[in-house]
């Protein structure tokens, strides 16, 4: 699948934004975050900003952005519509939470209740994003049970790494938060390795033989293309990444997305003097690593339509 930058940016930025929002909305009203107006405003602003910029990027990706409002009507059948509804609905408690906790500095019932509603909305929205991909049957690398936990964990992980960097910036780092970040990085890394193992070992059910129905005669080979120039199908669905690049990019995604932030957070935990640069390094590495991870999520996804154009497996 063609890795469109607008969609990669949307899923990574909004994912990190919702992850951060989830943690702020749960921890803030519970009084576990620094008692600082500036911290609350900056962290909530960053979370909502990432979400808003991400959603805007996904709208720009459309052929008719001015009709985007129509995209919430079919929530009964469409995960994309459900995502739109969830994103819009989440803004309501998120706005109440932002005003009561971040602007007014309250930790009472209003902030608490709106925080819980915001947290639920954030998780549901990210789950809907994952299900857009996981529900697509022609794409074996997406239509599997690893995609949903990956999206949820990576969202929580990127949000937690951002929160931890902000906490250390305000000199309010706590070993519990460093430990939470460590756990989330470890779980996300395991989920990603599980996903890569799955797509590397479990073959898709569709083959050139099932695509053409000609398997009864034996193995099927692509002989002649219908057209001489690449069409929409090949440009959108026929994106192919060389195996060599795939291996190298996975290594970069592993290193930047998981290994480096894991080591940096261990350093922050063990050596409080180095906590600030270590947590900032972790945030920077995660940002780059997860963008590459998401690029691979698209580039390594192979659509069944390529079976009609010479692909021997999908």
């Amino acid at each position: 699948m063609h890795p469109a930058f607008s969609i990669i940016f949307f899923t990574t930025a909004a994912g990190a934004g919702y992850g951060l929002l989830l943690l702020l909305a749960l921890l803030g009203p519970a009084g576990l975050l620094p008692d600082s107006r500036a911290f609350a405003v900056v962290s909530t602003g960053l979370a909502l900003g990432l979400v808003a910029v991400g959603l805007l990027s996904s709208v720009i990706h459309l052929g008719h952005p001015e009709r985007a409002w129509r995209a919430v009507s079919q929530w009964k059948s469409s995960w994309l519509a459900r995502e739109g509804v969830a994103a819009l609905v989440t803004f309501l408690p998120a706005a109440i939470f932002a005003v009561s906790w971040a602007l007014l500095g309250r930790t009472g019932a209003v902030a608490g209740a709106s925080g819980i509603a915001t947290a639920i909305g954030a998780v549901v929205t990210v789950a809907c994003t994952a299900m857009i991909y996981a529900s697509l049957k022609p794409i074996h690398q997406w239509h599997n049970s690893w995609v949903l936990p990956n999206y949820l964990l990576l969202s929580a992980m990127t949000g937690a790494v951002l929160l931890n960097a902000l906490l250390h910036l305000w000199r309010a780092g706590r070993p519990e938060f460093d430990a939470l970040v460590l756990v989330l990085i470890a779980l996300s890394g395991l989920a990603k390795e599980g996903y890569w193992t799955f797509i590397g070992t479990i073959p898709a059910a569709s083959t050139p033989e099932t695509a053409t129905g000609l398997g009864r005669w034996g193995r099927v080979r692509f002989l002649e293309s219908p057209h001489s120039e690449p069409n929409y199908l090949l440009k959108e669905m026929g994106f192919a990444i060389g195996r060599k690049h795939s291996v190298r990019l996975r290594l970069i995604a592993r290193t930047l997305g998981f290994t480096l932030p894991l080591l940096a957070t261990v350093l922050a935990l063990g050596l409080p003097a180095a906590a600030l640069p270590a947590s900032l390094l972790a945030a920077l590495a995660v940002a780059l690593g997860i963008i590459i991870e998401r690029w691979l999520f698209f580039a390594e996804a192979r659509h069944t339509v390529t079976l009609y154009y010479g692909a021997t497996t999908v």
Partner: peptide, 25 residues
């Protein structure tokens, strides 16, 4: 009504749908 999100073409295993970049649908 089409907003040109292309999701339907991703959902078709047969490649029956083609996006018109000129009309955006």
């Amino acid at each position: 009504l089409c907003i040109g999100c292309k999701l339907c073409s991703w959902a078709c295993p047969y490649g029956a749908r083609e996006f018109d970049t000129d009309t955006g649908t």
